[in-house]
Every structure is written in C-alpha cells, then in structure tokens.
Design a protein around this nucleic acid. Structure first.
Lengths: 112, 112
DNA sequence: CGTGTAAGGAATTCTGACACG
DNA sequence: CGTGTAAGGAATTCTGACACG
C-alpha cells in the first residue's frame, strides 16, 4: 500500500531534459502548462522544474494530442480521473479505519 | 527482489538543484567529481546531470567529510562497498540459476 | 587538501509577440 | 487551436586560475 513517491513527485528536472525525455518541444510543454495540463514548480530564477510524474503525464498528453484530442478535452478527462482517484482515496481511508478497529493483518482477521 | 530503479538512476538533475537538495556548493560537488566520488552524465551543452542516487551518495559523502574523512579514504570505502555488492550480485545470480534448475516457486520446491 | 571567488564565455531558459491556419 | 520562430534579456553552468592554509 505504501508507495515510493518521494522520487516520482519531486520537481527537479529542467525543461530541456523534459524535452529529451518526452520528445516534445519547449513550446509545446509551456503551452500545455498554459492550458492547465501540467503544473511545474519554479526555482528562484523562474526556471521551470518538473517531476517524473509530470513527464509521464506529458507522454500521455502527447498521445492524446496525436489522436487529435483538444487540450480542453484532455483537461476534462484529467479532472474526472482525479475525482475517481479521490473517491478511491476516501474509500481506502474508511477501509483503513475499519481495519484499525476490527482488524486485518496479513489477510488474517483479529479483534483488538 | 526486483527494484524500482528507473527513476533513482536516471541522470536528469542539474547542479543547481543538486546544491539545493544536498546543501553543498557547486564547487564542492565538482571537486568530489574530480576526486572520483561521483560520476554525473553530461548533456550536449556540457552541463552536468545527476540522479537521485547521486544525491544520496553526495549526502553520505558530506557526512563523512564533516567527520574529517579525506576524499581519498571515501573513495577506498566506496570501492570496498562496491566489491561487496558485486559479490552479493554473483551469489544472487547463482541462487537464481539453482532455482531455475531445481525449482523454488513461492517458497515451494518443484522439479522441472 | 578542500573550498571560496572573480573572470569570461557558452549554453539554457524566460516572456511576449508575430505568423500560419 | 496548437506550434514554430526570431528577439532580447536574465539566470545557469562551465573551465582554469589564484588564494588560503
């Protein structure tokens, strides 16, 4: 259940490297940010910083763009996925509370 | 046994970001490279690229330096650790070959 | 030995705009 | 709408060297 997110989510990659990893141009990457599809951090000097997660998102975006999907539609789709994920998180939390009270460990039940 | 190395090993981080993450100066980081303690990649434009693994190494190096260890000794120590790791890799490989021939699956033995 | 710094240049990134369609 | 490009400036990074110790 616990995931290794520390590296995937850290925004440390410059736009030039993102271009290499995704095959996209700087122009495209900045435009997708303008259209609210990705959200890089900024360093003091204003340079954009991306995470590996951002890169994965960009590759998915690139695929959808190739299929002719518009940025607006992509944003809609991402919003929906986010809602689903959030519902699953709530469900997981409730499940966790149930487990804490009524007990499940390594698949075996117990009473606390 | 299979590890998620794809992100940890990818050299994508610029030196400025490494400074922020490690608290070291550019000068220090470049010097440790000169002393063969780290080995960043280079982009076309000659800028250095580091991985998260490099950053972890640098933090260990920083700790040893604070304790007064010399770069030479650190390099020796790293060499030894590398040898140990390599021996373990060999052992793991042999074990894998044994398993392939005589069989272990999910902890249960089998004959092929 | 390990690190700071000023020096000068090269590579990187940024923004706003014009262009095409 | 999505992307290329030239423009000018600002931030980043690089190397080799001098300094201190």
């Amino acid at each position: 259940m616990a995931e290794e997110t520390s590296y995937k989510d850290k925004k440390v990659i410059n736009i030039g490297t993102v271009c290499e990893l995704t095959g996209l141009s700087e122009r495209q990457i900045r435009y997708y940010e303008e259209r609210k599809l990705i959200f890089p951090d900024r360093s003091k000097g204003k340079t954009r910083k991306y995470s590996f997660n951002d890169i994965e998102s960009l590759m998915k975006i690139a695929n959808m763009m190739e299929e002719g999907t518009q940025t607006y539609e992509i944003r809609q789709k991402m919003k929906k996925e986010k809602e689903i994920a959030s519902k699953q998180a709530v469900r997981g939390e409730i499940q966790g509370q149930l487990n804490a009270r009524f007990g499940v460990q390594d698949g075996r039940r117990f009473r606390s």
